[in-house]
């Protein structure tokens, strides 16, 4: 069934971006992190800015993002990535600086840092992975966990009286004057991934215009934490996560 005539270098239309290292990702099968990493690598590669980009990785599953994208990285303490990025960008204004943060990192322990980086209008890009759960520590409730959703610390489902409500931090940040571009995307289909990639590229381009912070939320899956297969997790995300976290642009100061 394989067509050997077609398998020639000149016929390649898609392959792993050169900026992704050959390290096997430690993520679970089907994890959105890998797809988002790839899109970021593609954007940096296509913009030709490998030598001008500094990534800040978070605490959580994607702490090891630095093993996969071949750029210089700083690994931050839990939630503090926007502070590192702030200083990096201010001290090296010619650089492209982005943080990569999960929902626990950004929307729980790091709320002060992200809010004030947005409020100051730091010219950085923030990639926010929202899968509604803590992955690395074993599936505990995140600030973005949906009501009724079962996690290891909400074993009977998230109850607002006991656990509070899901935090729509992206909409909150859009209200801050220092943000330039705020969008919510996903990567579960090819079309969605292409849109997400365009959004990431726009974020990087905006960060060079010095018009404020660009924030790209990626509604993601954690199939291990959700206890679903990768394909089932994508469906569950479409049915449940999108209802609370609808995809699309929320703010664009240049539009």
């Amino acid at each position: 069934m394989e067509n050997l005539d077609i398998k020639r270098p000149e016929n390649i239309v898609y392959r792993k971006p050169a900026l992704l290292t050959d390290n096997i990702m430690h993520y679970c099968p089907g994890c959105s992190h890998g797809t988002v990493h790839k899109l970021i690598a593609e954007v940096i590669e296509e913009m030709g800015i490998q030598d001008q980009t500094v990534g800040i990785s978070p605490v959580g599953c994607s702490v090891f993002a630095y093993n996969y994208i071949d750029i210089d990285w700083q690994e931050a303490a839990h939630g503090r990535a926007p502070a590192l990025a702030t200083a990096t960008k201010r001290l090296c204004p010619e650089k492209y600086v982005f943080t990569y943060q999960g929902d626990g990192d950004l929307a729980s322990i790091g709320t002060a840092e992200i809010i004030h980086a947005c409020s100051r209008g730091e010219n950085i890009v923030v990639i926010f992975i929202n899968n509604g759960i803590y992955g690395m520590t074993g599936g505990q409730m995140a600030p973005t966990t949906l009501l009724g959703m079962k996690t290891s610390t909400t074993p009977y489902g998230r109850d607002p009286k006991l656990n509070g409500f899901p935090l729509k931090i992206t909409e909150m940040l859009a209200a801050l004057d220092g943000t330039a571009y705020i969008t919510r995307q996903s990567v579960h289909t090819a079309a969605a991934a292409r849109k997400a990639k365009n959004a990431i590229r726009k974020g990087f381009e905006y960060s060079a215009k010095n018009i404020g912070l660009s924030f790209i939320e990626i509604v993601s899956t954690c199939n291990s934490g959700w206890k679903l297969s990768p394909v089932e997790a994508n469906k569950w995300m479409e049915e449940h996560m999108f209802a609370k976290y609808p995809v699309g642009d929320i703010k664009d100061v240049l539009k």
Binding site: I56, R80, A83, L84, A85, A87, L91, A112, E113
Partner: peptide
């Protein structure tokens, strides 16, 4: 560069970021 951070947590982590750049 001089910056008033939102907290000491943030200012020490700005130091971490700046020091990471060799500054």
């Amino acid at each position: 560069v001089v910056l008033q951070a939102e907290s000491e947590l943030s200012s020490i982590n700005m130091v971490y970021g700046g020091a990471s750049c060799g500054k």
